[in-house]
């Protein structure tokens, strides 16, 4: 076994741990009746894991964990629809965060805030397709603000974690 095999082994163990962490975050969030009077608003604790991986391990790893987490959490605590909504939000926000990070001009907080906002946009677009009614875009303004706030909070938490333990995780 060469160094590549060793790296793979180490990486698999790491990613497995992060996937478990993301699932725990999902579980904790499903326990908290986090309700603001608007459907679809969540704190998005699991995004800490995604942001953390994006900055410490890499884009591929972050995307893989995000998608796997969505499917597993959907099977465990949700329903087929929650998978669909989370998936569209998760992938859109990931792409935006990745693009913004690549510019190299923005800090973690801003990247995460953009992720929070676009996550809600992605989810709402999918919801509009599923119910075949564009009128639910009525929620968009509130969801955008909610995404900003939650994304910002998650960004601060993620940034602190990256500063403190970032060099000990990942490659």
């Amino acid at each position: 076994m060469g160094w590549q095999g060793k790296y793979m082994k180490r990486n698999t163990a790491y990613l497995g741990m992060f996937l478990a962490l993301a699932l725990i975050c999902s579980y904790v969030e499903s326990l908290i009746p986090f309700y603001f009077g608007i459907p679809g608003v969540k704190l998005g604790l699991t995004n800490i894991v995604v942001v953390l991986l994006l900055y410490t391990s890499g884009a591929k790893e972050a995307l893989a964990i995000s998608v796997l987490r969505i499917f597993l959490a959907g099977f465990l605590f949700g329903n087929p629809f929650s998978i669909l909504y989370s998936l569209s939000g998760g992938i859109l926000s990931f792409l935006i965060m990745y693009a913004l990070k690549r510019t190299g001009k923005l800090k973690v907080v801003t990247v995460s805030t953009a992720g929070g906002i676009t996550h809600n946009i992605g989810q709402l677009i999918m919801a509009a397709f599923v119910v075949e009614n564009a009128n639910i875009m009525y929620y968009l303004p509130v969801l955008l603000i909610a995404g900003f706030v939650t994304g910002f909070l998650i960004g601060i938490l993620s940034q602190e974690m990256i500063f403190r333990i970032g060099d000990r995780i990942g490659r």
């Binding site: 923005l106 800090k107 303004p141 603000i145 900003f148």
Partner: peptide
């Protein structure tokens, strides 16, 4: 933790979103 660009971007985005709301 925050660069000048970040504060600028966050402030503008927040202002726009609140405006829409």
């Amino acid at each position: 933790r925050f660069g000048k660009t970040d504060i600028l971007v966050l402030a503008i985005v927040f202002a726009v979103l609140s405006g829409i709301w």
